[in-house]
Write a protein that binds this DNA or RNA. Sequence first.
RNA 1: GCCGGAGUGGCGGAAUGGCAGACGCGGCGGACUCAAAAUCCGCUGCCCGCAAGGGCGUGGGGGUUCGACUCCCCCCUCCGGUACCA
Length: 913
Amino acid sequence: MPRYNPATIEPKWQAFWEADNTFSAPRLPKDPDKKLYALDMFPYPSGDGLHVGHPEGYTATDIVCRARRMQGYSVVHPMGFDAFGLPAEEHAIKTGEHPRVQTEKNIATFRRQLKMLGFSYDWDREIATTDVEYVRWTQWIFLQLFDTWFDKEQQRGRPIAELEIPQDVQAMGEDFARRWVDERRLAFQSSAPVNWCPALGTVLANEEVIDGKSERGGHPVERRPLRQWMLRITSYADRLSAGLEKLDWPEGVKALQRNWIGRSTGAEVDFQLAGSGQTAEGSKAFPEKPADGVLRVYTTRPDTLFGATYMVIAPEHPYVERLTTSDQAAAVKAYVEAASFKSDLDRTELAKDKTGVFTGSYAINPVNGEPIPIWIADYVLISYGTGAIMAVPAHDERDFEFAKKFGLPIKAVVDPGGDLEVKKIVYSGYKTDQPDDGRIGAVEYTPAKKEETQQTIPREAISDGEYVFAGAGVAINSGEFDGTPTAEFKTKITAWLTQNGVGKEAVNYKLRDWLFSRQRFWGEPFPIAHELDVDGKPTGQIRTVAEEDLPVDLPHLVDFKPHGRPEPPLDKAPKEWLYPTIDGVKCKRETNTMPQWAGSCWYYLRFLDPKNSDAPIDPDIEKAWMPVDLYIGGAEHAVLHLLYSRFWHMVLFDRGVVSTPEPFQKLVNQGMILGENGEKMSKSRGNVVNPDEVVREYGADALRLYEMFMGPLPDSKPWNMDGVAGVRNFLGRVWRLMIDDRAEEVSLAAEVSDAEPTAEQLRVTHATIKAVTEDIDKLSFNTAIARMMELVNFFTKETTRPRECMEALVLLVSPFAPHLGDELWAALGHDETLAYEPWPAFDEAYLATDTVDIVVQISGKVRGKVSVPTGADQATILAAVKADPKIGEQLAGKQVVKEIVVPGKLVNLVVKG
RNA sequence: GCCGGAGUGGCGGAAUGGCAGACGCGGCGGACUCAAAAUCCGCUGCCCGCAAGGGCGUGGGGGUUCGACUCCCCCCUCCGGUACCA
């Protein structure tokens, strides 16, 4: 085998590694301080097989793992499959074949393809989320969620057993108390409106709905009230937000999560309804729930209370009916009905044009006793804050637009301050929490017309109701508070509201509770059953399946078809499955299933202890390996998966199952690999690259190396088959450096010798070791490969290639091209795989040269170079520069006014004339 | 609109205050060969020039600096996310 031939080398070493268990990870790290848990986002095994995007991140983690093993680390590097999900079920609907059959076929394909690429996974740890034993522990974790309530004071989840039931609740009877407890669980039932997608026959999480359409398939989604399982992720909003600080994650992903959680601070304020009798006077405590006859709003700008000229409630607000006067009844009824038919899509599309209707009622502004009208409008969302707002049209763009349209009064209460003129006009400025950045006149305005980009606005235009000013300034028209800066005013008015019992500081989140049930077959069944009475009617009492009876496996079903109604397919399950007896009571099982996210919420834990039949994970193992040190995957999981799994992890932390507050210490997003035409790869565009074909044509090492050489890991970059040929050629050059490619058998090239390396050979070799080692630490694989190419180019020209240097090169290349690495290592006479061979060390002493070239600039332009001894001081360097005839020529007739000397690098002579 | 990322040769990219374009692709030329393939060697940002050499050049405009792809301010374009969240 004279030529470099990956087709024979690669399968040989893959078989060896497998038989040898080369990459089997120890139960516990040998040295607790030298452990690496490197995790890939496990794939969904689709019917299309592996995409070339998959091996990008997988190769990156594999390189780090292989290098770290050689550096003496204990490494866990697992792989598995996120195998529940819609496509397998849709296939089942079409063919009648059980989704498990199709899923297992797909997994087999993925496994073959992954093995073909030579990743150093510990395959003994392979799991699929659909494995019955895995489902068992997913259900077990659900039971933990069900058994946990959130203690707000302590900001942590605690067992239900530690939840004290108040006397007055107990007095209401057992049934009431049980319901009271159920309402406090982290896993609870709710019949709030949900996103029902008729085409998919299921409800979707808010996160799965994009612009009113399903994320998968783009089908229309409508709102419908349905009984659903919810997870109380909002309880953890603060911790999910705060926890981001300490994580080594891309700033973009952190920002995305923060934005998704959407924490804002402001105040809740009670507005007394006009004519309801009481006034806002008198100091009392601010009640947890608004008193009767009180409309409660949430605002981030309590400092603009004096400018509230009307109020708006959402069409779904419970006060709609009571506030509507008889002469407004018809108009309100029509408006509310119209709003209820609007899908989210309609609301989004119509967002530009404000609509609304007057209720006929008024509320009293607590700060000045003025009555203001209450309107209904769908620009106020029932799901955020209190579902009601105070409108301050002078200082909020949406209120402004609404006020303009319906002729409501606009009253300025914030003076932009400083100059009358503004430097810069921008078109919005809701960021009312942001203080002025201090630049004089650089204040954000919102002009009524949007054509101009640069404009000067007289300050009076604000009070004229001509412009919106949503920034921070100084209070005006606010009684005793006039002249108070916005930030200070917020604090003062909040204190005033608290004192008078009409308001208090409040925090709100955009994050909603997680809708956790799906009307699907191919998902984890809930370990839950509903108690039935003698007539077979549900009593409303929930029974959990005992831990020892887990898992609740899916029944066999012949008919997988959804029926267009929201009842889940499992309703058609055999009676023996559907109606179990729990604690001697006849029950009906929960027939919803968990969403696909469930399995991926904790797989990183199971990888560490995949065969444990007593617990999801052994605590000693968990403590030794967690957290995940390096997590690489696509940016598409920036919010959903990464937020959900952090939430579960925090609950498991509170319940003592895990010991780290966060699961993933370092996160890296790989960029997208585009087609050769620079567009996203897709079947319809016909630009999909098949990894099987690339491996057949060029080999797995070439595919790996190419994907790492394309550019920085996080960047998107287009595929180029010529580039694959290029790295394939590089691998051939490495081969020929050491192997006589004209011999019949694999034998070393004549140039390889046991001779001592020359000083230059040592310098080049050690410079490469240093650069490659550092580049791997930085995940800068493209530059590491470039440095190895330089080394190969250098030694190709050398007629003597010392073994010492060749071995270093083989070890450096091996994490990138592991098959070639082991093959050459064997050719160099070693009996064992290089997988645990010590990583080459570099010696700074070899890097030094006797002389160094100093760049000479004249007035910043490069005009020449001089050679000086390494370590020469400034004076020596300057002397050498001035002695240089070419430089002297350039300086003739000119006066040097400044001399800049950077030792070892550069001299800049600044001249005059 | 808001948040995040990015704009460098024909192409992918390198350089994060000190020689812009490492490395690779593509292109051009050469060696080997009867020839081709394979391999090896050299050249390759643009403009002027026979050459020596000179000028220009990192999306645009301004600034800081002896010196800016790199730092600061403003603007443009592209990609991703998100959007009546009060």
